[in-house]
């Protein structure tokens, strides 16, 4: 029996020949919630995409194992079958393909029974407050940002992964949807022992989803790790306070941060 852990060891990766991640080490055990927080441009999204094997992201060194299974040698769909789930910041609209057929085909590929998929979806939809008339409609098409987030949580609930990577699912303005999605994920950590790697810019996700550990990512490296108090410190002091001037990205001109409405401190929550 392999040790149950999602283990990221010495992971470095590049995009377009530019090294974005440098020797990342993380261990997520069943039922644990790890938050990876960092300013814009720190490599957060790259980490989530590398874990799921998105084309265009090249791993240069290191390893990722899921309960002993080497993920980096697997195509994306087999990583999912092994138990990894990626919830996207901007869930893709898939015209002409229903949620029901996605979950059915996923179950089929994993060798699971495809019977009862609809019942599971209806139950999950009720749980997350998602209108079940969306179940037979094309995935994410014409859904609001908030509905898309509920949909991601719904799919996670239906697919029952062992580990979920949440890529900045707290972007967007629908606070109720975020709360519902976070609550569902929190419940999965308690009920199904789901391990969570929550990648986020803001701390508001962590109001519902309680992290066991917080890691601060800066310039592609894990700069600091600590308990939930680290998130509180980030909230109070901002990234500059925690990382110092040198820890914030130099490659992102402040003008861009201003345009994005983050002010001087990229950590300032626009909703706060």
């Amino acid at each position: 029996m392999n040790e149950r852990v999602l283990r990221i060891e010495g992971l470095s990766a590049r995009v377009d020949e530019i090294e974005i991640l440098h020797r990342i080490d993380l261990e997520i055990r069943p039922g644990e919630v790890h938050a990876v927080m960092g300013p814009n441009g720190s490599g957060k999204s790259t980490l989530s995409h590398v874990l799921m094997g998105r084309p265009g992201y090249e791993v240069t060194e290191g390893s990722v194992t899921l309960d002993g299974i080497d993920l980096l040698n697997l195509p994306t769909w087999e990583r999912a079958r092994a138990g990894l789930f990626l919830a996207l910041q901007h869930p893709t609209e898939v015209p002409g393909v229903s949620l029901e057929s996605v979950v059915t085909e996923s179950a089929r590929a994993a060798g699971r029974s495809t019977e009862g998929v609809n019942e599971v979806l209806v139950a999950e939809a009720t749980r997350i407050g998602f209108d079940d008339r969306f179940l037979s409609r094309p995935v994410n098409v014409d859904l609001s940002g908030g509905e898309k987030k509920r949909n991601e949580a719904l799919m996670m609930g239906a697919l029952r992964p062992k580990y979920a990577v949440l890529d900045e699912i707290d972007s967007g303005l629908d606070v109720d949807a975020l709360a519902a999605a976070s609550r569902r994920i929190q419940e999965a950590t308690d009920e199904d022992d789901l391990g969570v790697l929550a990648i986020t810019h803001f701390s508001r996700l962590l109001e519902v989803l309680e992290p066991d550990q917080v890691h601060v990512l800066a310039r592609g490296r894990i700069h600091t790790s600590g308990g939930p108090e680290l998130a509180e410190r980030l909230e109070a002091e901002g990234y500059v306070g925690v990382l110092g001037e040198t820890g914030t990205p130099v490659d992102l001109p402040t003008g861009i941060i201003h345009q994005a409405g983050f002010g001087d401190d990229p950590f300032v929550d626009p909703l706060a």
Partner: peptide
């Protein structure tokens, strides 16, 4: 990629997308 990330093999994903198209 979205479909693959939900555990659907590449060929099946393309098929779903084409049928959907």
């Amino acid at each position: 990629f979205f479909l693959e990330s939900r555990g659907i093999p590449t060929g099946v994903a393309e098929r779903l997308l084409l049928e959907g198209f």
